[in-house]
Amino acid sequence: MNDPALTIFGAWLSVGLMLAVYSFLYDDNPFFKIAEHFYIGVSVGYLIVLSFYEYLIKKFWEPLQGGHLWVLIPAVMGLLIFTRYFTKLRWLSRWTFAAVMGWTAGVAIPRTISQFLLAQVDATVKPIFTVQSTPTGTDVDFFINNLLILIGVVAVLVHFFFSVEHRGPIRVTARVGVLYLMVAFGAAFGSTTMARMSLLYGRAYALKEYSSAEYFYATPILLAGIIVGLVLWRQIERRILPTRRMS
């Protein structure tokens, strides 16, 4: 598959699929739907192949061949999930769900307490000021950021604590929590913008690469093709299917 002709064909295939997806920006249309369904298909096919070699063979079949018969137990439990398709046998799937949920819950509790609770509380409770005696006198350092973080964490927790009515001091504290949350959401939005623009840049770079003579100007030619296709589709939709507007 290192053949130059296949490389160029691959480039044209990529560009065609990319532009078909971008045609959604004009309107939902058949090109986009074809690309979307094709994507689901290749993803599923990829997953079947990958899971066959990485999972079925390496994780199940070979250990079974090697005498580790215990793998049959989870295999049978996994197959019990399929009983959900049969009304009378559906209850058997509960055994598998119960085992899975029990394992997940048991694994989660100590690890969550350790890393998400204790470690984070430890990082929150930091010195707000320190007093040190020096040869010249007493040195007092005030760590305002530590204080602000402590206030913020408590305020946000109070905001999400609904077992007590938010009145008086609780209401004020919860309101402070909301202000902290707004700043955090603003930072999140700013960062989300950066992320999405990065993804757009990545695709724009790829389309630019494929617009060169080396790839026989795939991008401009296919872009023109998609535009013509969209115009024709719109004409067909207006004349033959006037009541069925894709929006």
């Binding site: 950021n145 602000l148 973080i149 206030i151 913020g152 946000v156 927790l157 700043v183 955090a184 930072a187």
Partner: peptide
């Protein structure tokens, strides 16, 4: 912004979720 109000709010959410 990222190290003070954002950390405070996000940490509060992490603790709540935990």
């Amino acid at each position: 912004i990222l190290e003070v109000p954002n950390v405070a709010a996000t940490r509060g959410i992490i603790l709540g979720v935990a």
